[in-house]
Simulated assay, not measured.
Amino acid sequence: MKPSDLMSHYGCKTKRELSQKTGFSEVTLWKWEKNGIPPRTQATFEVLTQGKLKANLEALIA
């Protein structure tokens, strides 16, 4: 899962919008773009979106 996937799902055009909708800071979103979304956070988004967004299973194993 990538930040762009979250932006598409939540219908956001900017990181500021995504920040407001998810409650994560813009700095956090920037870090996710650079380093990837942490596995537990991906799993949380998978549950919150009822499986519409899928956690990267390879990241969960590592």
Results as ranks from 00 to 15, higher is better:
32 W>E: 13
22 T>I: 02
39 P>C: 12
48 L>S: 01
6 L>V: 05
13 K>F: 13
2 K>W: 09
51 G>L: 01
62 A>M: 13
12 C>V: 03
51 G>H: 00
6 L>N: 01
29 L>T: 06
15 K>C: 07
18 L>W: 04
23 G>Y: 00
8 S>H: 14
54 K>H: 07
42 Q>A: 03
35 N>K: 12
46 E>L: 02
42 Q>I: 06
26 E>H: 12
41 T>N: 04
50 Q>D: 09
29 L>F: 13
21 K>V: 06
5 D>T: 04
23 G>C: 00
2 K>T: 05
54 K>E: 07
21 K>T: 11
53 L>A: 04
58 E>G: 13
54 K>T: 12
28 T>L: 15
21 K>C: 03
22 T>N: 03
37 I>N: 05
33 E>C: 06
58 E>I: 12
20 Q>F: 14
56 N>C: 06
39 P>E: 13
56 N>T: 06
60 L>V: 09
41 T>P: 01
27 V>Q: 10
27 V>A: 14
9 H>Y: 14
58 E>C: 11
11 G>M: 02
7 M>S: 15
8 S>N: 13
18 L>G: 01
24 F>K: 02
59 A>H: 11
8 S>K: 15
52 K>E: 11
18 L>C: 08
28 T>F: 09
39 P>M: 04
37 I>C: 06
37 I>E: 05
55 A>V: 13
4 S>F: 15
39 P>D: 15
25 S>E: 06
19 S>W: 04
56 N>S: 09
42 Q>V: 04
22 T>P: 03
36 G>Y: 01
54 K>W: 11
44 T>I: 11
48 L>Y: 00
35 N>C: 14
56 N>Q: 07
11 G>L: 00
27 V>K: 05
39 P>N: 08
30 W>C: 04
34 K>V: 09
11 G>V: 03
39 P>A: 13
40 R>Q: 08
26 E>D: 06
46 E>C: 05
25 S>C: 10
60 L>D: 10
28 T>H: 09
20 Q>L: 14
31 K>S: 12
16 R>E: 08
38 P>Q: 05
42 Q>T: 02
51 G>N: 01
59 A>N: 11
18 L>A: 03
52 K>G: 02
37 I>W: 03
13 K>C: 10
17 E>L: 07
32 W>I: 06
5 D>N: 11
40 R>P: 06
29 L>K: 08
17 E>S: 02
19 S>F: 11
27 V>I: 10
